[in-house]
Amino acid sequence: MLELAPDVLAFLFVVAVAAGFIDAIAGGGGLITVPALLAVGVPPVAAIATNKVQGSFGTAAATWTFWRKGRIDFALLKWPLLATVAGAILGAVAVTFVDTDWL
């Protein structure tokens, strides 16, 4: 198991807050979190997985908020949602075949 010192955890917390702020405005917070996770020694596949899990929670919160305000037409989004799920599955499978040194 990866042991992280308190100062490294504090650094990652600051990075996560900054990435969340950027995600809320325009997206792309993973461009900050993934390199930060790799820099502190997290294995590449774990860094990507961590980024995707945190991104999923952010997207779920935004979707819930927009849905409650009546701003999402799920019927209109049916095909894009299915394409997104298919792409996510294909991407997750593809990354397991890539050499971690290359990542």
Rank of each mutant, 00 (worst) to 15 (best):
L2W: 07
V45A: 12
V93H: 07
W79H: 14
T84M: 14
P44F: 08
V85K: 08
F97W: 13
L82G: 08
A10G: 09
W64N: 06
V42Y: 01
S56N: 04
A39S: 13
V15W: 02
N51F: 00
T33P: 00
D101M: 07
A5G: 07
A47Q: 08
A60Y: 12
N51Y: 01
A16Y: 01
V95E: 04
S56F: 15
A88S: 13
V40I: 06
V53L: 15
L4W: 09
W79Q: 15
A5N: 11
P35Q: 14
V93S: 03
D23L: 00
V34Y: 02
M1N: 14
V15P: 03
A26S: 12
F97A: 15
A18S: 11
L12N: 07
G41I: 04
A60K: 10
T100V: 13
Q54H: 05
V85Q: 06
A92H: 06
A62W: 06
R71K: 15
F13E: 01
A19S: 10
A47N: 06
I32S: 08
L9Q: 05
D23Y: 04
I22K: 04
G29C: 03
F74G: 05
L76I: 05
L103G: 08
A36W: 01
G87D: 05
F66Y: 15
L2A: 10
P80D: 13
G87I: 12
N51V: 01
V45E: 08
D99W: 05
A24H: 09
T33V: 10
T59R: 12
G27L: 04
R68P: 00
D7M: 02
V40K: 03
K69T: 02
A18G: 02
L82P: 03
G55D: 10
V14S: 09
L81R: 07
V45I: 14
V98C: 06
V40C: 03
A5K: 13
G70H: 04
K52Q: 11
A24G: 11
V8D: 02
G28F: 05
V8Y: 00
L37M: 11
L12C: 07
A61K: 14
L76N: 08
F97L: 14
A10I: 08
I72Y: 03
L90A: 15
F11Q: 06
R71V: 00
S56M: 14
K78I: 08
I32H: 09
L38Y: 05
A60D: 10
I72A: 07
E3L: 14
A61C: 09
T100P: 12
P35A: 10
G91Q: 09
I72E: 04
W102K: 15
V95N: 02
P35S: 11
D7C: 00
G41K: 05
G29N: 09
G41E: 02
R71N: 09
I25V: 15
I72W: 02
T96G: 08
V45R: 15
T65N: 11
P80E: 13
A60M: 14
L38G: 03
A36Y: 00
P43Q: 12
V93E: 08
V17H: 04
L4G: 11
F13Q: 02
F11H: 12
W67M: 04
V42I: 14
L76P: 00
G70Y: 03
F13P: 00
L9V: 13
L82E: 06
A39I: 01
A5I: 01
A86G: 03
T50E: 06
L2C: 06
A39W: 11
